[in-house]
Design a protein around this nucleic acid. Structure first.
Lengths: 197, 197
DNA sequence: CGCGGGTTTGATGATGCTCAAGCCCGGTGG
DNA sequence: CCACCGGGCTTGAGCATCATCAAACCCGCG
């Protein structure tokens, strides 16, 4: 159950975890099952949990005035789900997060998360996470500003090929900031190009 | 010289700075002047400095195959300039950073930045910075995926009105992921709407 | 068999880009 | 003092890209 979380921490920290620390971590991360289509967070609520995904797939999205969903983030195993701003500031979130597949998570509350600050390996891990998040954000922002729809798809294919296997195309399209029809046509184009070469 | 940096740290941390810590900080942050159009970082180089802006304005951008500049970030006083990925991982950067106005910065090298980890107030400050960066990234990503050009401009106007005063429109346009012509027309539209109401 | 979710296709139109020209304004130098 | 220049902004015409809407298709499943 907790294995993948401990591996995750080990991979990102130099300091090893003591017995006691392992116990503390086990005591604050509560396992939960989230069934397909169930919400982890609904817009308007404060994000109660930061959730480490053991198994499954989740999506974070905004619903606009017209009722259209815009995918902000897609999450798979060993990713964290939750709206960071809402969670850390304890303010209402503008986003929904729900399970796309039946998902097993380890949930952590804001107050519990503070008790973890006494664990050096955890602090190091958090720093790594934040770094990686900011690297990824910058890349994605760059892509979104300066690449065409086709280039953005190519980049995704290259950077997160798992997404294409686990999420349907209309979610991928939304994540890339285009419609499902556009993505469908782009894919057709790509196949055509490969035929030629 | 260092006042604004110390204020910045105080605003973001609970622990106060000791005399010694103040001295350490002063010793590792080297003041530099960067003249208008001078580079802090050029694409292909490793980002040597993280720079705290005391006074002035900088821009971070990518140059595409066609030679067009795409603005990734705009920075003013009390912001940090530098490519985080290149700086922390010490890998070549894909971005340029240069001064838009004559700028005074306090520069910090990667090795010096590690010595600061002994200062609790600094560590707290860094965490705040990372948080804020990730909140802002998420908002911007959301805007970029799900808002129209006009809505994006409105959001910028609301969130960073200083930008409109300090940077010319063609940079703002690029930052928002549109051309200068489009931005010009959008502004015209907005004025027209205000006439009506 | 029929239904639901997902994908594809086509027609049409809006949005935003490209290219080209002109304007405005604050220097700079003759 | 004026002419000119460069940088930035605006405007227009035509075009590419992408969105919208509607219909059809595909396929796994009850």
């Amino acid at each position: 159950m907790y294995d993948s979380l401990f591996t995750y921490i080990k991979d990102r920290s130099k300091t090893p975890l003591s017995e006691k620390e392992v116990e503390l971590i086990k005591s604050v991360f509560i396992p939960k099952k989230i069934r397909k289509k169930q919400y982890l967070l609904q817009a308007g609520e404060v994000c109660k949990y930061s959730a480490f995904i053991i198994k499954g797939a989740m999506r974070q999205y905004r619903v606009d005035e017209k009722g259209l969903e815009h995918i902000i983030r897609l999450n798979l195993e060993t990713w964290w789900a939750g709206d960071r701003e809402s969670f850390t500031m304890q303010v209402p979130s503008a986003y929904n997060i729900d399970a796309w597949e039946d998902t097993d998570v380890l949930t952590l509350t804001k107050t519990d998360s503070e008790t973890l600050n006494s664990i050096p390996a955890w602090v190091e891990t958090r720093i790594r996470m934040d770094e990686n998040y900011s690297f990824a954000s910058q890349k994605r922002m760059n892509a979104s500003i300066s690449l065409t729809a086709e280039q953005r798809y190519a980049e995704l294919q290259q950077q997160y090929p798992e997404f294409l296997l686990r999420f349907p195309q209309h979610l991928i399209a939304s994540y890339l900031g285009m419609t499902k029809e556009t993505l469908s046509r782009i894919r057709k184009q790509i196949v055509k190009k490969q035929m030629v070469s």
